[in-house]
Nucleic acid binder design. Structure first.
Length: 938
RNA sequence: GGGCGGUUAGCUCAGCUGGUUAGAGCGCCUGCCUUACAAGCAGGAGGUCGCAGGUUCGAGCCCUGCACUGCCCACCA
């Protein structure tokens, strides 16, 4: 039965060779090759050189197995992107990573789709028979399961392919059976006749979670029930479901309801049926709803079922499994439930028993899968007793599952979901695990036709365990999909161990580190994994034989709940709406990295993502930017080589470092790289993907490209007369910074960074993949002086550029500027060449004041003016200055208000007060200058 | 019926424990094919942070109420 797919390619994939980098980045040209290379080289479980630093730490993630119902959708890609970023990051930190992939058989969902397929072919599963049908579903699974896994490879998921599973693989099926048998033996699985949610279309029981309630306008009808022995007297009940009256066995009123006290104990004649039914008292009845009298139909309503139990009433089913009226319905037999309702109302009307009918809104349950209105139905099902004490310490499963989150053995992000989880776990009912389906794990129970007892066994029994009869037949029901997927955290690591001791995998990987999943399966899956994981692992000792501490029984230590991906109009994506975005199409259009980066940059915890392509377009541009920066850098490496300058490859992986006497931009970019590395690590540690992504984006584009690369052009002097030592130093920092940037980017954009990293090392890289290199580490404030000086330089350059625009200097022209320094130690003279290049300045003159007539820009540290004859647009300049004046005065007023407030001075922290004082002084200065400038304009 | 979230620039969204002048991308305006990149470069416009109160020296952030909006849970027939 095992159909384990061969996911690791036999043929080694040839490492792509570097060609000349084309001018524009073309993702399609490189992505397939790298995706295949990562799998064939098994990068997902290769130890990194820095593993020793991680001290044997492992990082394990269980991928929520996609259903084999279709291809990957955008939600998957989002989930996988987030997970892959964390996994790649942890791997680069040296952790031993195991991100376990698999696919889920998804019982009811898959069966429904295959049935739909059959219907299109004009046949049914019933016509096919169970065996043939199941075979057919396996075919379906082979197709879709394969497509899903192929897509995962294509988008670069670094899952551990050696551990790939399907929930109906033989070993997992064996474990599922073991779990069932154990719980049965512990008395925690029982079988019984209860009211369950029944889907008349799927013809199976479904759990409470699989019912989606939807408010609908309906009618509340009043029906008079004649009192026996009192002609002309009626007890009027109110109901939304008249068709179920055929199964009524009583009418209930509240015992305290004065209107009805004298009715209690009397007998009514059930209209249309003629059955005599009692009037009973039950506190559940709300006197203020409807008429205060409720018809009791134990076989068709969960409340009524409870009432029936309390009062020892029979339960009469009047419908069959397709929600058509059965023989108990007499004249209505064979009618659909709604047809029956119509007819019954008509008949009651004729008999004069139908009273008022008023509009009434109530929540109708629908089958989560096929949207059919669910019918509460009395049937025999299997349940897990989650609130029954048992096991080694007499806990309940739900109790342990609550403790797991309460004790913070499991930490949930965003935090607010913890409360939702705990509320749910507190109010949890027994879990109906049987399904009347053909696709799934068949329940390992045998019914004896001789003694009617049940035999539950690990091995298929030949005879009844109770009477020895050979007349036994296996239970036809299968298990709820979530029963098997709920066991995955233990089963994928080899549970149950043959010797009762933890298997090597359980020892190494359990509890898993992180679960990344959506809110929609919080209860379906996450809660079930906690229920089952804590329960079964309490019996598995630690590797040293000691009892397993509670915190080690949980299936995962952290849960990150991600948001939902919606379309650009914030609509939920759904096939019926036709607004589903196919990730593969978007990937083809913009490249995988751009899509991944889009998702990451929008992944603010707790906020749904409105996926719009405009953003992806922007990140495609980002990828192109990276590509071209690489082209520029590699071009210069080539030039250097020609000039006899070569940078030691072994030095590239080091974080850039600059001496105090190194050029300012070098010290600055080194400090920035460290500070960004520090912040990115911090952000990823808290699952703030968007923050991490934006940090590297800003660093790469804003700092590295816009400023550093432009300046470094000045240093890359390969002429004969150049200072080769200085050039080499500059080139080294450039390459180190770029290398660090690629590594910072690689968890987000694995493809382009892989390609460029190999190119950077001229295809002789220090490791098989950038994914195995060390993730950059750093610290904030590694060189504050450089950062401050560079900021001043930027301010000056921006001011000059703006001034040039104001006075209308042609773009190509260089002009002299004049600077009036208001502080000593400004970094301008020392960086004249930078200013000249970036602001197109021909020379700087130090001034003690500023000339009349020219436009001046002022900062608290300096004034600057551009020496240019051309007439200024006085009107525009006046407008700008006036606006500036308003802003400054507003700031000054705000600062003065606070500084004039004694309690502010008293209570606010020193740094704030100091900062505000400085701001006030600066603002005063700027106001003065602005006023003067305005006066000069006339 | 309970519970949770959202409302910040034209659009999509950041803004982590309240702290000095609220940010980004896209779009828009102006000028540039400056030999890495026009998927680019440079400059710029654009916000009474949903409304009303309150707490505080200080509120986009905390509290109360309201409005709009989205989601989850729920056995008033």
């Amino acid at each position: 039965m095992s159909q384990h797919s061969q996911t690791i390619q036999e043929e080694p994939v040839e490492k792509p060779n570097r060609r000349e980098l084309p001018k524009a980045y073309d993702p399609a040209a490189i992505e397939d090759r790298w995706a295949a290379y990562w799998v064939s080289e098994r990068l997902f479980d290769v130890q990194t050189p820095q593993a020793a630093e991680a001290q044997g730490r492992s990082f394990t993630v269980l991928l929520p197995p996609p259903n084999v119902t279709g291809n990957l959708h955008m939600g998957h890609m989002f989930e996988h992107t987030e997970t892959d970023i964390v996994v790649r990051w942890r791997r680069m930190l040296g952790d031993r990573t195991a991100w376990v992939p698999g696919t889920d058989h998804a019982g009811i969902a898959t069966q429904m789709l295959v049935e739909r397929q059959l219907a299109a072919e004009g046949t049914t599963r019933q016509a096919m028979g169970r065996e043939k049908f199941v075979e057919r579903v396996w075919q379906w699974r082979a197709h879709y399961g394969g497509a899903i896994l192929a897509s995962m490879k294509r988008i670069g998921d670094t899952v551990d392919w050696s551990r790939e599973y399907f929930t109906m693989d033989e070993n997992l099926s064996h474990a599922v059976r073991e779990a069932f048998v154990r719980l049965y033996e512990q008395g925690l699985i029982y079988r019984g006749a209860y009211i369950v949610n029944w889907c008349p279309r799927c013809q199976t029981a479904i759990s409470d979670l699989e019912v989606a309630h939807e408010e609908q306008k309906g009618t509340l009808w009043e029906i008079g029930y004649p009192v026996i022995g009192e002609p002309g007297q009626f007890l009027t009940v109110a109901t939304t479901r008249p068709e179920t009256m055929l199964g009524d066995v009583a009418v209930a009123v509240n015992p305290l309801d004065e209107r009805y006290q004298h009715w209690i104990g009397k007998t009514l004649r059930l209209p249309l049926v003629g059955r005599e039914i009692p009037v009973i008292a039950d506190e559940w009845v709300k006197s203020d709803f409807g008429t205060g009298a409720v018809k009791v139909t134990p076989a068709h309503d969960p409340n009524d079922f409870a009432v029936g139990q309390r009062h020892n009433l029979p339960a009469i089913s009047v419908m069959d499994e397709t929600a058509h009226m059965n023989a108990e319905a007499g004249a209505y037999q064979g009618m659909d439930r709604y047809a029956a309702r119509k007819k019954i109302l008509e008949d009651l009307e004729v008999q004069g028993l139908l009273g008022a009918a008023r509009e009434h809104v109530n929540a109708i349950g629908h089958c989560d899968r096929c949207k059919t209105v669910v019918e509460p139905r009395l049937s025999t099902q299997w349940f897990v007793a989650v609130n029954k004490p048992g096991g080694r310490n007499g806990h309940t499963m739900a109790g342990l599952a609550k403790k797991a989150v309460e004790s913070e053995a499991i930490r949930i992000t965003p935090e607010q979901h913890s409360k939702v989880y705990l509320d749910w776990m507190t109010n949890i009912y027994d879990w109906c695990i049987s399904r009347q389906l053909w696709w799934g794990h068949r329940i390992p129970a045998w019914h004896c036709s001789a003694c009617k007892e049940i035999t539950v066994a690990r091995q298929d029994p030949a005879q009844c365990a109770h009477c020895g009869s050979a007349e036994i037949t296996q239970e036809t029901d299968v298990l709820d999909t979530w029963f098997s997927s709920g066991l995955l955290p233990v089963t994928v690591f080899g549970w149950p161990p043959a010797d009762g001791k933890p298997t090597p995998d359980l020892n190494a990987f359990y509890p898993t580190s992180l679960l990344v999943t959506g809110f929609d399966i919080l209860f379906f899956w996450m809660a079930r994994m906690i229920l089952l994981g804590c329960w079964f692992m309490q019996d598995i000792p630690m590797v040293d034989g000691s009892e397993r501490p509670f915190a080690e029984t949980v299936p995962f230590r952290e849960v990150y709940i991600h948001a939902l991906v919606r379309d650009a109009d914030r609509q939920k994506m759904s096939k019926t709406k036709g607004n589903v975005i196919d990730p593969v199409e978007i990937v083809k259009k913009y490249g995988t990295d751009a899509v991944r980066f889009t998702l990451a940059s929008m992944a603010s915890p707790g906020t749904d993502i409105a996926f719009n392509e405009a953003r992806t377009e922007g990140y495609r541009a980002f990828a192109n930017k990276i590509w071209n920066a690489a082209r520029f850098i590699l071009m210069n490496v080539e030039r250097a080589r020609e000039a006899g300058i070569a940078v030691d490859r072994a030095a590239l992986a080091a974080m850039p470092e600059a001496d105090a006497d190194a050029p300012l931009e070098e010290r600055w970019i080194a400090a920035r790289a460290r500070s960004v590395a520090h912040e990115v690590n911090a952000a990823l540690g808290e699952y703030r993907f968007h923050e991490a992504a934006n940090l590297v984006y800003q660093f790469f584009w804003g700092d590295f490209c816009d400023w550093y690369l432009e300046i470094v052009k000045l240093r890359l002097d390969f002429s004969e007369s150049a200072d080769k030592v200085a050039t080499k130093a500059a080139l080294t920092t450039l390459l180190q910074t770029f290398d660090a940037a690629l590594r910072l980017l690689s968890p987000f954009m694995p493809f382009i960074t892989e390609e460029l990293w190999h190119a950077l090392y001229e295809d002789e890289p220090p490791a098989k993949s950038i994914a195995l290199t060390r993730f950059p580490q750093g610290a904030a404030h590694s060189d504050d002086a450089a950062e401050r000086d560079f900021a001043l330089l930027q301010e000056l350059i921006v001011a000059v550029r703006a001034l040039r625009k104001d006075v209308g200097v042609e773009e190509k022209l260089t002009v002299p500027i004049r600077i009036h320094a208001l502080e000593s130690g400004l970094p301008f003279e020392a960086n004249l060449d930078i200013i000249q290049k970036l602001a197109r300045v021909s020379g700087i003159e130090a001034a003690s004041g500023f000339a009349e007539g020219a436009t001046v820009r002022s900062t608290p540290q300096f004034d600057v003016q551009v020496m240019y004859e051309k007439k200024v647009d006085t009107e525009a300049e006046r407008e700008r200055l006036t606006k500036e004046m308003v802003r400054l005065e507003k700031n000054l007023a705000s600062a003065q208000r606070q500084l004039g407030n004694p309690s502010f001075l008293e209570k606010a922290p020193e740094a704030i007060v100091e900062g505000l004082r400085k701001q006030q002084a600066d603002t005063r200065l700027l106001i003065e200058k602005t006023r003067k400038a305005l006066e000069e304009l006339g």
